[in-house]
Design a protein around this nucleic acid. Structure first.
Lengths: 350, 350
DNA sequence: ATGAAAGCGCTAACAT
DNA sequence: ATGTTAGCGCTTTCAT
């Protein structure tokens, strides 16, 4: 029995691998980091030693010298309910949408060994913490998805010149990168579809008009309808919630009883609209055709299942992560935005 | 202009603070870490120096010596769709439930300066990565929420003796801590409520019977009904999805047309059941009373809004985080579990 | 192409 | 009660 053997539990260090391979720490470091100028034979030896010892780099040590953490912040910047012991008891993060974004982000990052740190920025204090966290270099950058339009965090990120990418164009123009979907194109798909289905008295339920996405969906829809010869499209503003969809549909029905087609700015509101229509004895799609937006889980849960405009959320989130890493690697890069094309998913509601 | 001034951008180190306060690094470290044996006057001086310099500890450096990271893994161990470039395009994380768990976890951790790293463990490879990540000490422990009953990750965590706490009791007994809700009590609340509402032909739609939660809800419901003098309760097994709820309700209606009350093991299925009932012309709650479970967003989105059993998900998640940190601080602690009491939320479906 | 050695910022003996 | 010092594991000049 050799007695010098270190305990198995302690994970091996570079030093251990170097000894096993009969080379120096520096050489091992080079092959691990893929730096050229290493003899292929030695590379092979080192690789075997790494495998034998089960070596894995210590992130803290590496981070200390490289000033890179291999982590990014995944920030959900929600509408804030200040105060209270536990500020998360609101449903801020209870939207399935965030899960899809998270999935897309992880899908890109994980193969690259980068990990997302989940953060919520719903209060002034929380935002300050997030900024401090990033400034300290505890994460290399941030991807951000906001739930409301007056979110001050994007501006704070720019101000602190921290690498960041947004999901969706900010309400106020800002020198910051983002991914988004072509809302106007999506709205046009809905308009074309409704017209193709023979609808002539078409209305729309818009999202909150202070958010750019809602504005674009509305104006895109109106423009497309106008191009089809319907210059006037009645509109009721909703709040993206199920209930606001119900209320809006009631209003629409009261003001325009003859309506035979509705474009609703998101699926949740469309689901509400569907219920109101049924309640009023209107058959869908027989009497009224309905088209939603997002292709969320609400679209398939609705009765009838909802024809809707599909957001490639996961792809967009993956691209957002890619753009961030690009920026982290080269902070000098110009700000860019990538716009994704939506598609029409036809189900039974139209 | 003094020329020796360091660039403002470089964040100050312990050394800088020590110099500013006229003490040694060690002393500064002591006051920052709240170690006693420091003269109050000096403490004050140091604190001021910290404030003046804007010092914040470097996590990597600290982590390197303490072997603690100040981060934990928040693992979603989902049903796996192996293969494919992007394994997250399934709806694994698109359940609002996970958002609530995340909120509860962050609510506890954030005030303590601990950050959750979001990880998915949906494939064999991903699970191996998660284990490796933890073994390397890149996180101090893990909280885990599984989406299916045969998840091998809990056993792997135990095997590697990594600090971990589960959300929900594992299907196979395992020496691991967890939080859970008293499913049987919740089911009893539903039974008592239905009986109090005068229902005499009560049935139930269960969840998948290989998961402990479903079993407990079913047996708890049956026992409670038996105590009320209803020894036989028809049951159809569902899969916790909206659609499986529809199918189950169809079956129930076909086999037991006289049913006047249904306890459904989760809200999503209950929502589906509601639609089927309406489709068959049964009034809810007039003809059939329905009680769900979870108090998820589906409960309020349903028409009529669902009477349901409320899970204190955020509190449970917070407790899960607390238990983990306790274990991280003292790995010797015995395994424990904490069971939360559910409550009945009466809405319009019963 | 490889090795020696310095040092990233911090904590924790150990010494005083 | 405070200071001195030795690393934690890694990358990266700088020699060779």
């Amino acid at each position: 029995m050799s007695e010098g053997r270190p305990p198995v539990s302690a994970s091996p260090t570079l030093e251990d691998v170097a000894r096993a391979a009969g080379v120096s720490r520096a050489t091992v470091s080079r092959v691990i980091n893929g730096v050229r100028n290493v003899d292929p034979a030695i590379q092979e030896t080192v690789r075997r030693a790494v495998a034998d010892t089960g070596y894995v780099p210590n992130r803290a040590a590496r981070s200390l010298v490289t000033r890179r953490t291999g982590a990014i912040a995944l920030i959900v910047s929600g509408a804030g309910t200040d105060g209270g012991e536990n500020p998360f008891h609101n449903q801020v993060f209870a939207d399935p949408f965030f899960g899809r974004v998270a999935g897309g982000v992880v899908g890109f990052l994980r193969p690259r060994g980068v990990h997302p740190i989940l953060m919520f920025a719903e209060t002034r204090e929380a935002r300050a913490q997030v900024i401090a966290f990033l400034r300290q270099g505890n994460a290399d950058g941030a991807v951000l998805v906001s739930t409301h339009s007056e979110d001050p965090l994007p501006a704070m990120l720019v101000e602190a010149s921290l690498p960041a990418v947004l999901f969706a164009r900010p309400a106020t123009p800002l020198p910051i990168s983002y991914v988004d979907v072509a809302h106007r194109t999506g709205a046009k798909l809905a308009a074309d579809h409704l017209v193709a289905r023979g609808r002539r008295r078409v209305a729309t339920i818009a999202g909150p008009l202070d958010v750019p996405a809602s504005q674009d969906r509305l104006s895109g829809f109106r423009d497309a309808m106008a191009a089809h010869g319907f210059p006037y499209v009645p509109c009721v503003e909703g709040g993206f919630t199920h209930q606001s969809g119900e209320i809006a549909m009631e209003r629409l029905l009261a003001d325009h009883p003859g309506v035979d087609g509705v474009f609703v700015a998101n699926d949740l509101m469309a689901q509400g609209a569907l219920q109101v229509l049924r309640h009023h004895g209107r058959r869908v799609p027989g009497d009224v055709a309905v088209v939603g937006f997002d292709d969320s889980s609400a679209a398939t849960a609705s009765r009838p299942p909802l024809t809707t405009i599909r957001h490639p959320v996961e792809d967009m989130a993956g691209e957002m992560a890619r753009m961030l890493m690009e920026r982290v690697d080269d902070p000098g890069r110009p700000v860019t935005s990538v716009i994704f094309e939506p598609s029409l998913v036809v189900r039974d509601s139209s």
